[in-house]
């Protein structure tokens, strides 16, 4: 039983990271129907920037929480800047191009960013400092769920609630929902659609970067390729939950994380990805609009 709980704990942790990244995918897709392939790289950039900042701060004698907060903050700010620039360079000029063009542009950007980090830093795996301290009160259950896992779960939960509030109640959130429903109509009622799209990229990038910082510190090492697989998994999570649907992305992430952890624990860790994609394929065949997505009836 304790083994099962341990798997559930690690599955939920993994799943909440997927969910953080998946939110960026799903928001962007909801608004401009683009699979932002470079989104995984933003997550990787976030982890790298946090690593650099944390390294520099450690050398200058900072400690524990200060490093985690500062590194996370800088990573989030930079990821936001990168996300914004990415949209301006690679996607905005293609707003009216055929569907496949922005997708190719996104794949190109993903390649570019991966190689940029590889050349600027290193092609090797870098050890990531364990920024998350061990909590004393976690001692009795430490063999089932670690402090890092609890912190990741808590942070993700807070961020997701904050995002929901932002989208439900703020002015820009309202504008985002309007743009998602009908871009032309949103423009007609005076919404600056370009600004809304930029904002969406910024928010998605911040979430992804925080995911990167948490994962780096949880797994203990990063390199320039981590964004690719995480990106694909997160996108899978987004589709699983019903793409364009924000609670769906969270649910999809958690389901995916749990599936992977249980499959790795009880079947074989080599085949965990097969199970992840298998679940996706099954859901798409049985319920093509995703778990929470509403089936759209096409009108002719």
């Amino acid at each position: 039983m304790s083994y099962f709980l341990e798997l559930v704990g690690s599955g939920l942790t993994r799943g909440s990271i997927y969910a953080l990244i998946a939110l960026g995918y799903t928001m962007v897709y909801g608004i401009i129907q683009l699979i932002n392939f470079a989104h995984g790289e933003i997550y990787m950039l976030g982890a790298f920037i946090a690593l650099i900042v944390a390294g520099a701060l450690t050398i200058h004698g900072f400690s524990g929480w200060a490093i985690l907060l500062l590194a996370g903050l800088v990573a989030a700010v930079y990821a936001a800047a990168y996300g914004y620039t990415l949209e301006r360079i690679a996607y905005r000029p293609l707003r009216n191009a055929p569907r496949l063009s922005p997708l190719i542009s996104a794949i190109g950007m993903s390649l570019f960013l991966q190689n940029y980090v590889m050349l600027a830093q290193t092609p090797d795996f870098l050890p990531f400092p364990a920024l998350i301290p061990e909590f004393a009160f976690m001692e009795p259950v430490a063999h089932i769920i670690g402090s890092a896992e609890v912190l990741i779960l808590a942070t993700s939960a807070v961020l997701m609630i904050a995002l929901t509030v932002l989208i439900k109640y703020s002015r820009i959130g309202k504008a985002m929902r309007a743009t998602q429903q009908d871009m032309a109509m949103a423009r007609l009622v005076g919404i600056d659609v370009d600004r809304v799209i930029s904002f969406t990229f910024v928010v998605g990038s911040v979430l992804a970067a925080i995911g990167g910082v948490l994962v780096g510190s949880y797994l203990g090492q990063i390199n320039f390729t981590i964004g690719f697989m995480a990106g694909i998994k997160a996108f899978t999570a987004a589709v699983l939950g019903g793409i364009g649907n924000i609670p769906g992305a969270v649910l999809g992430g958690l389901v995916l994380g749990l599936t992977e952890a249980l499959a790795a624990g009880y079947v074989s860790s080599a085949y965990e990805d097969v199970f992840a994609f298998g679940v996706l394929v099954l859901i798409l065949i049985l319920r093509p609009s995703g778990l929470l997505g509403r089936a759209v009836r096409e009108k002719v």
Binding site: I89, A90, P93, S105, G108, M109, L111, F112, L113, Q114
Partner: peptide, 12 residues
């Protein structure tokens, strides 16, 4: 790096 950049540029 160049390859990725060319892909983006070409699309634009």
């Amino acid at each position: 790096l160049v390859f990725g950049a060319v892909m983006v540029l070409m699309m634009i």
